[in-house]
Computed example of a mutant assay.
Amino acid sequence: MSTSPRPDTGDDPAGLLLLRGSVPEVSAWIRKGVVPATVAPMDGWTAVFPEGASFADPPYADGTMVTASRPIPRKLGPALGFWVVDGRAIITLQTRGRGGIRWVVWEPERGIVAPPGLPQAGPVSLQRVAGGGSRSELVEILHELYVQPDRLLAAVVAVLELPGARLMVDASGVADLPGAVSVLPAPKEVGYFNDAVRDAVRLRQELEA
């Protein structure tokens, strides 16, 4: 069985993804990926907490970044993700349209930055997808420069009136969420992914040669 009550592994899940699909639909999506995750219903959303490393080969072994960068099916959207990666606070936004993933990237002592090639999301879009919260308070939080990334994200989640704010700072409570299940990627999906990556690397090497 690839879906089971979440075991207490002692490892804190890294990041929070909130989607509008049902727990069974989101669990099926996780099984088609490469990152194990806890899935739980939370106040009208379905929450996904990546459980550490990806099952894929490098350079896709970082479960947090793989999940943050993974497009969601339209039927599961819209979605908001909150991630701490390399000391940065990252927010991802996906709607049911075809705009792809939009990003908010925040760095300590610098605030919001604009990495090349990443479409940006603004406070208006975040508030619209969240369905609530104070825009002025959100802007004020995102202008902070001297705060821990996880606490900044917790404040953003709270001001947007979304569930899971406290879990951004202390994820030990994930095991106790009502209805939480641990979902593992299907081995064949991991195999397909690794094969596709190897093929892409081989093709690039041949083109460079």
Rank of each mutant, 00 (worst) to 15 (best):
K75T: 08
P116Y: 14
P41S: 12
L145N: 04
L152F: 11
V169E: 15
A56D: 05
R96D: 11
D86F: 04
E140L: 11
L138P: 00
A61Q: 08
G97P: 00
R74G: 07
F55S: 03
P119E: 14
P123K: 02
G52H: 06
A53L: 11
G63L: 02
I141Y: 04
P58D: 13
R128M: 09
V169H: 05
L152H: 05
E144I: 05
R70W: 08
A61L: 10
G87S: 05
A171H: 02
V113E: 09
V66E: 10
L160W: 03
G133K: 04
P116H: 15
G122Q: 06
R166D: 14
P149C: 08
S54M: 03
P50D: 06
A79F: 01
G44E: 10
T46I: 11
G52P: 00
Y60W: 13
A121F: 03
R98H: 14
G131C: 08
V139Q: 05
G117A: 15
D62F: 05
V104A: 10
V156L: 09
I72Y: 01
P123L: 06
D86R: 10
I91A: 05
R110A: 14
P163H: 12
K75P: 00
L80W: 01
W103I: 04
F82L: 07
V113Y: 07
F55K: 11
Q127L: 15
A40I: 05
L162R: 00
L153T: 01
V147D: 03
E51K: 02
D150G: 00
P73F: 09
A165N: 09
A79C: 06
A40M: 06
L126F: 06
V48G: 01
R74Q: 13
E144T: 13
V124D: 15
F49C: 02
T95L: 07
V105I: 14
V105E: 08
G117T: 12
I141C: 02
A171C: 06
G99M: 11
V129K: 00
G87M: 03
G133S: 09
D170L: 11
A158Q: 12
G164I: 05
G164H: 07
A68N: 04
E51G: 02
R98F: 15
E140D: 15
S125H: 05
H143Q: 14
R166F: 06
Q120F: 12
S125C: 00
G133C: 06
E137Y: 07
A47V: 08
H143L: 12
Q94P: 01
S136H: 09
S54K: 02
E161R: 12
T95F: 07
P59D: 07
V113N: 03
R166A: 15
E140N: 10
A155G: 11
P119N: 12
A114F: 13
G99F: 07
V124Y: 14
D170A: 10
A40G: 08
A165T: 09
G44Y: 10
Y146D: 13
L126K: 03
T46L: 14
G164A: 10
V129M: 07
R166N: 04
G117N: 13
P73H: 08
Q127W: 02
V169L: 11
E161H: 12
G122K: 09
